[in-house]
Structure formats: structure tokens, C-alpha cells
Design a binder for these strands. Sequence first.
DNA 1: GTGGTGCGTAATAATTTGTTTACGCACGAC
DNA 2: GTCGTGCGTAAACAAATTATTACGCACCAC
Lengths: 111, 111
Amino acid sequence: MVEGDELVRVLTALASPQRLRMLAVLAGGRRYVSDLARQVGLSRPLVHAHLSKLAAAGLVTSETELSEEGHAMRYVTVTPFSLSLTPEVVAAAVATLPGPDPRDANEENKR
Amino acid sequence: MVEGDELVRVLTALASPQRLRMLAVLAGGRRYVSDLARQVGLSRPLVHAHLSKLAAAGLVTSETELSEEGHAMRYVTVTPFSLSLTPEVVAAAVATLPGPDPRDANEENKR
DNA sequence: GTGGTGCGTAATAATTTGTTTACGCACGAC
DNA sequence: GTCGTGCGTAAACAAATTATTACGCACCAC
């Protein structure tokens, strides 16, 4: 079972066409940041910001390597994930969310 | 297979703790709008706005009924959904997204 | 009439997210 | 030295989302 805050993080990370595009590119194999930026047509700082969200959600990882030319290249890799969502899963995850508890309503409104 | 824009709509709708809470409440059975608002502790217009997003994503439906007291009651029901997400599913959905196509990078960057 | 319940919508404000520009570092090739 | 490649970050700005307040409609009970 997934924790509520983790679920929110993952869903939020995925709820962006730009980030989905980035994941799609990376699903075909790891890329270094500048290449990824060129691929998806975004500026480097923007890719940086998006990657930060994907990483925080655990959807990508990155490692820095030295290229033959002496460049510090930051390679980004998709972390394999499998997320199954149903209303029941949502309800269970929400139960672990910090914050306001649902208020008990009387049962007579339930039909 | 899910269409890209539909996926974005669903993920965006779910990427909100408030809306997840609403879904969790509704997963336990349908509620009318004011009751739902009280349950999640939000103002009615706000619930309205959130419901609009959930409905646009096909995650809830609503119907208006007349109560015994003559009130027009708007009942909201969760639409059963099952969403399975993996990097491959994302990539396939992204391929159907309108907008900038991924640019072909030469293969030499791929290691 | 007042007060309670329900409903939808508009306008406005506040907050969050997204994006660009700019700065500066590194290395190697010329 | 300049120019090309790579990198991270900050600041400023724009856009989008979220939330509140207000308005007005309906019905019923008293």
C-alpha cells in the first residue's frame, strides 16, 4: 500500500505534459540533461526544475560522469515504477494523509 | 491504451490532496454537494470547482434529485476507475499527446 | 415576513507553479 | 585569448491554480 503523501508527490510529478514527455524520452534510455532539454524543447533551468520534481517523487535518478572531453555529464535514468490506482487505493492512501480528517456524516444521507 | 490528453486530465485531477480526499469520501458512497463540502471542510464554491475537474476527468458523475423537503440535491458518485501506470504506459500515452514531438537525438549519446 | 436547507455562478485575492534571463563555474579545441 | 561543450543556481516575471466572498435563485417551516 502506498502512503498518501508519496501518492500525492508521484501524481503531482506526473500531472504535467512536459514531465510526461521527459519521462517518455527517458523511457527509451537514459539521457544527459542538456540532451534531454534539447529533446523536449525546454530550457535547461526548466528541465532542472522539472527533474527536481520527478526525482523527489522517486521517478528518476541521476548520476554525474566525466565524458572523454572532460565534461561533467549528468545522466538521468527512469526509475521503473508501477502504479495501480482505483478509488479504493485512493481511499486507503488518503487515510494516511496528514491533515484534516474526514468528518463523520450521519448515515441518513447515504442512500 | 489511454490517450495522452486523457491521462493528463486524470493525473491532474488526482494531483491534489483536496480532491483525493473528496474521492476517498465518495468511495464510501455517494454524497450530495453540501454534505461533501462539510465532510472535507471546504467551501461549497470550492468543492464545486474541484468537482468540475474531477468530472472533466471522468472520475465522478452527478445527478440532481428532489428531496422530500423539496430541495434540489446534487448527488455525486465516484466513477469506478482502474489506472495502471508504468514508464512504458507513459511513453505510449505521450506519443498521442498533441504538441512538440520529441526530437531525434543521434544514438551516440545513448550509452 | 424570517430563518433554515439546498443550489450555481461571478468577482476578487492569494498562492503556487512554471518559465526565462542572467550569472558563473568547468573542460577542451583552436 | 575566444568559442564550443557541459554544469548549477538565483532572480525576476508570467501563468495557472486555488480559495474566499458575495450575489441570487429555490423550497419549506414557523
